[in-house]
Design a protein around this nucleic acid. Structure first.
Length: 614
DNA sequence: GTAGGGTTAG
């Protein structure tokens, strides 16, 4: 069988699933036969068929047979109806360990970790002992609530009851530690495992990726790919599968290692793992994060099955690249094709609206989320709404919106307000938002810098200096502005006024030439973005060697002619650089794509894809 | 063999 057929099938929409296809009275009476039928319906996620069988079993009394009850609990779990699993469990006259196991897994699989953990305690109170099926569900639930201490308790319990070396239990514990950010414990657990399988390796690689330990993730991946990893069992393909690939692609995307990502994409094509929706989703994210949104679309369109993750990855790509109409269309198609949006989907939609300044559309999606989809907005949804209102200059409305929040505003909510204030130079609201941030104990330098920029944008350089001094007094250091560009399998990084690069002389000569050309075409330096009270010439000089300009100069002298230039940046692109790059794109005829800390800007022939709204 | 470990955002 080809690999892609062996990969997991997506959850089918209930409405499209087949029914039993035979009249009710023809169903077998024998519980065993019913179990076999139900197993088929479960793997097809056929809700109507299973419900029909359930009704029949209730009538005939077969539902009292434990094994059929277990099957039914599992059936509802896989149909993502954990409440119905719970009801069946309650109706069971006698509860075996397996009955508890089915219930716990139903909760764990359906993102109800608290219920899963309380059911785990219920099982213990009821005098049962957890087994190799139950420990993984418990570990998964600890991971979901990121409670490493509880997880460690589950771990020591598993060791004491003799399940500490079980490959399923240990893999789930590796994953639990990694998800809780305890990467050292995860690695110790992993190293001590007497036998490992694909999931243990993938979990460990994923954990490293999550913690930003790219080198370690890549070296583990190499080990497992070449079969160097001792103790790999039950794996073909040198112990990798679609999930391992999607983990390693994620490493590439978080560090924007495009060339390595492309190579791995090639591997996925050769092995047919590219048909997996996991791999597809991470490839979409890779290309989007590396600034090649066309390639992201291509991967998306070529995917044979698209799950929720794939739709969300595509929506995020649309949002980040300012393809707002595509995001709206994608959202409709997703619903029409039977995929239910989740909270991430709505974060994408709100962020798409924010990038385009579409306040009314954003409000519409925000309302729709709860009213039509029953998804309660989280603080992150509120933060994105505040971002949308603030960027659009509707700061009083944003403040009002925060006041009416049913949840306690978080750092990101106040941070979003502050971002809006910076853009529109509203120093009063900025001071208010910053005060709330400091009350929450914000230790990031971001708040101080945003406040300082808000003052600078309003022309109040004393205020700006005060904000920066307050930051210094607290022992915080400003995040250094960096720009980087990948070329010849190397990442070239630049800071403002950088003189470290081997090609510095050529770079500065190119910079000079570009600036002259831009000025001839009408570019006038706008120094109002410099948050320091320097004299005019000094300001101009400081702006003229911003890191993104150095990166562009480097790319122009290094990359082959005509090749689009892709720059990554850790801070927001400054207003003057934005104008300058527009001129450069027109004078040189080159496409320049800049990713700042929030979105992508694609400069072509003198205009930017953000429409100057960012 | 009815029950178990993995994705997608910023």
């Amino acid at each position: 069988m080809p690999f892609f057929q062996a990969l997991k099938a997506p959850v089918l929409a209930a409405a499209a699933a087949p029914t039993l296809g035979r009249p009710f009275h023809q169903l077998p009476a024998d519980p065993r036969a019913l179990c076999d039928l139900l197993a088929g319906l479960t793997s097809a996620r056929s809700l109507p068929g299973g419900q029909q069988l359930h009704a029949h079993a209730l009538k005939s009394g077969a539902v009292a047979v434990p094994i059929l009850a277990h099957h039914l609990i599992t059936f509802y779990s896989k149909c993502q109806l954990p409440r119905l699993s719970h009801r069946l469990f309650d109706e069971c006259p006698r509860r075996a360990t397996a009955t508890w196991s089915c219930l716990i897994s139903s909760f764990a699989q359906n993102e109800l970790p608290h219920l899963a953990l309380s059911a785990f305690l219920g099982l213990l109170r009821d005098g049962h002992r957890p087994n190799d099926h139950i420990f993984p569900s418990a570990a998964k639930s600890c991971a979901a609530v990121s409670d490493a201490r509880l997880g460690a308790a589950v771990h020591s319990f598993a060791v004491r009851t003799g399940f500490g070396s079980d490959v399923f239990v240990a893999s789930s514990l590796v994953d639990m530690y990694a998800k809780c950010g305890e990467i050292v414990d995860a690695r110790r657990m992993f190293d001590e495992m007497p036998e490992r399988n694909i999931v243990s390796w993938s979990g460990m690689i994923y954990g490293c990726a999550q913690m930003g330990l790219d080198e370690e993730a890549l070296s583990l991946f190499k080990m497992v790919l070449l079969g160097d990893g001792v103790g790999i069992v039950g794996g073909d393909m040198g112990g990798v599968n679609d999930f391992t690939y999607s983990c390693i692609i994620r490493v590439c995307s978080s560090s924007t290692l495009l060339e390595l990502g492309r190579q791995i994409h090639g591997h996925c094509v050769k092995t047919s793992f590219v048909s997996s929706s996991f791999v597809g989703s991470s490839l979409i994210s890779l290309y989007s994060k590396c600034g090649i949104v066309e390639e992201a679309y291509r991967v998306f369109y070529e995917m044979p099955v698209r799950n929720l993750g794939a739709w969300n990855a595509m929506l995020i790509a649309c949002a980040q690249h300012g393809h707002t109409r595509d995001a709206f269309g994608c959202f409709e198609r997703m619903k029409n094709e039977g995929t239910k949006p989740n909270f991430i989907t709505f974060l994408c939609m709100l962020s798409a609206c924010s990038h385009a300044g579409l306040v009314e559309d954003g409000k519409r999606y925000f309302k729709m989320m709860e009213e039509e989809h029953g998804i309660l907005p989280t603080t992150e949804h509120y933060a994105t709404m505040v971002d949308l209102l603030g960027r659009a200059g509707r700061l009083p409305e944003a403040v009002e919106f925060i006041k009416q929040m049913p949840l306690e505003p978080t750092e990101s909510v106040w941070g979003a307000l502050l971002t809006g204030c910076r853009i529109h130079g509203d120093t009063e609201t900025a001071a208010f938002a910053a005060a709330r941030l400091f009350e929450l104990g914000s230790k990031s330098c971001g708040a101080h810098m945003l406040l300082s920029s808000a003052y600078a944008a309003a022309g109040d350089f004393e205020g700006a200096a005060r904000a920066r001094k307050a930051m210094k007094d607290r022992g915080l250091k400003k995040e250094t502005g960096l720009s980087w560009v990948e070329w010849d399998n190397q990442v070239h990084t630049f800071v403002s006024g950088d003189h470290h690069h081997a090609l510095r002389d050529k770079m500065y000569a190119k910079l000079e030439e570009l600036s002259e050309e831009a000025e001839r075409a009408g570019y006038v330096a706008d120094t109002s973005f410099v948050p320091r009270d320097l004299d005019g010439e000094e300001k101009k000089r400081s702006i003229a060697s911003h890191s993104e300009r150095l990166a562009i100069a480097f790319a122009l002298i290094s990359l082959p002619p005509g090749r689009p230039i892709r720059i990554m940046k850790n801070l927001r692109i400054c207003g003057d650089c934005h104008t300058w790059i527009k001129f450069v794109s027109r004078c040189t005829g080159r496409t320049v794509i800049v990713r700042d800390n929030n979105r992508f800007h694609r400069f072509d022939g003198g205009t930017c894809s953000c429409g100057d709204y960012w």
